[in-house]
């Protein structure tokens, strides 16, 4: 039902513990065990994380994300704080009227909403590209792991 509930282990459960010292005899060998002798614990790590981070596809994806996110964050932070700074320290300029009573201050404040929406939409479009790159990374990671396991045998 849910994957959150660990099965209870009680003392009267006599099932041998997987991965315990008694599970597979090392037979005094120094070299790595053949695949069929690996304990469940030794064989369980499904992903070699450092190898994934070194894949060119993964690095390209992270770079592409940062190339969008860092400039976007700098831009919106500067654009947003320009509003209180200008209104606070250049009230004369901000009070200049453009149409009728509508002044620069009001237009600038209103523009903040559209700035936020535009960045959000641009990010959605960029993220569709990131999703494709992510898909490649996940597939490649899965196939590399397959080959990694074959190499062990």
């Amino acid at each position: 039902m849910t994957d959150d509930q660990e099965p209870e282990s009680t003392v009267d459960d006599l099932t041998p513990e997987v991965g315990a010292a008694t599970d597979v005899a090392p037979l005094g060998r120094a070299e790595t065990k053949p695949a069929h002798e690996l304990t469940a614990a030794e064989d369980s790590d499904p992903v070699d994380w450092s190898r994934v981070t070194q894949m060119p596809e993964f690095r390209a994806m992270v770079r592409a994300k940062l190339r969008f996110i860092i400039p976007a964050v700098i831009f919106f932070v500067v654009y947003y704080f320009a509003l209180p700074v200008l209104v606070g320290y250049a009230p004369g300029l901000m009070s200049k009227k453009i149409f009728g009573v509508i002044n620069i201050a009001y237009l600038f404040a209103l523009s903040q909403f559209f700035m936020a929406w535009i960045i959000a939409v641009l990010y959605l479009r960029a993220a569709a590209r990131f999703d494709k790159m992510e898909h490649t990374v996940v597939e490649k990671a899965a196939s590399e792991l397959g080959s990694q396991r074959e190499n062990k045998e």
Binding site: A105, F113, A120
Partner: peptide
Amino acid sequence: YDGFMYSVGWLVAYLTVLLI
């Protein structure tokens, strides 16, 4: 106007949520 300027930050804040 000052009240309106006050309300701007509540939306812009979501860019941090979205991007980071």
